[in-house]
Amino acid sequence: MEPFRRLSALACPLPLASVDTDQLIPARFMKTPRAEGYGRFLLYDLRYGSDGRPSGALPLDEPARAGAQILVARRNFGAGSSREAAVYALVDYGIRCVIAPSFGDIFAANAANNGLLPAVVSEEDAERLLFALEAGLEELVVDLEAERIEGAGEPIAIMIDPVMRTKLLNGWDDLDMTLSRADEIAAFAEADATRRPWARPDA
């Protein structure tokens, strides 16, 4: 996974609360193998009419925002289902950081597993960023090492779980780390079988 340290990029406002995972990627697209790319499904029903034409409803499709790698949204971003496809849609579209006052827990975990930074800021700071972007600001700098956002006046503090931060800074994949502990896990399972003889499925 690509480490996330400091990102200086085009940013796009998404002035909505509770952008849930069903909106990030509608369920009907999830049959697609990942290899085909999920970027085109991002926020599909908000961006395209029922005739499949762009509705122009979101700033994401304004020419000036083309190539944006940072999204700024309101609270409860990524609420809802555990579908990692929501993160694939963002990542494949080119988004590397979402800034919002709060995130769905599972979404945030999925994001960190794919190198996408879920940057938590205060509601006030989110409103300030949205306002600045809507007033014409184009670029933001997200500095994960320094835990702050620059480019919209006073630097804005990012709140992030330290474990998630380390993982993103290093581009770590949990699985490789855990596989090296196979013996420890096996020993635990053996001891546990005596402690909780009822825990194995009995049929």
Binding site: S82, E84, A85, N110, N114, D174, R181
Partner: peptide, 11 residues
């Protein structure tokens, strides 16, 4: 999510 599903399947 899917990354964690893979992690549990494997470990």
């Amino acid at each position: 999510g899917a990354s964690d599903v893979a992690h549990v399947l494997a470990t």
